[in-house]
Amino acid sequence: MKLKSERHGSVVVLELRGKVMGGPDATVFRDELKKHLDDGIRKVVVDLGKVDWMNSSGLGILIGGLTTVKNLSGEMKLARTTDKIQSLLMITKLVQVFDTHDSVESAIASFSE
């Protein structure tokens, strides 16, 4: 997995790429998220548009991120979930947990002021 982050005002967009399969990926994601949270960022978008596939460990990484952000009274949203990832969210009923958006722009625009 590769991860790139970009700030858009008070929002950080974490773009994941490749295969998200757990192991070292969890540390990479957690460390990058922590860096932005330590800077005071509380609005997070995870862009999944360039993810080839993700397994349950990848879903666990996202849930861990969501819990961390929520515990700091922040919000985390998913953007550009591929059909494969959307299907996994349906199978696992995690559609009930994540706020998903078709584009990064709409995810950014959806944050409460």
Partner: peptide, 21 residues
């Protein structure tokens, strides 16, 4: 059961469910 409301925020336990699908 990872789809039970009480387990939805668990970070693990979904592997066999996904494989079966």
């Amino acid at each position: 059961d990872p789809t039970e409301p009480a387990n939805l925020l668990s970070e693990s336990g979904r592997g066999l469910l996904i494989i079966s699908h």
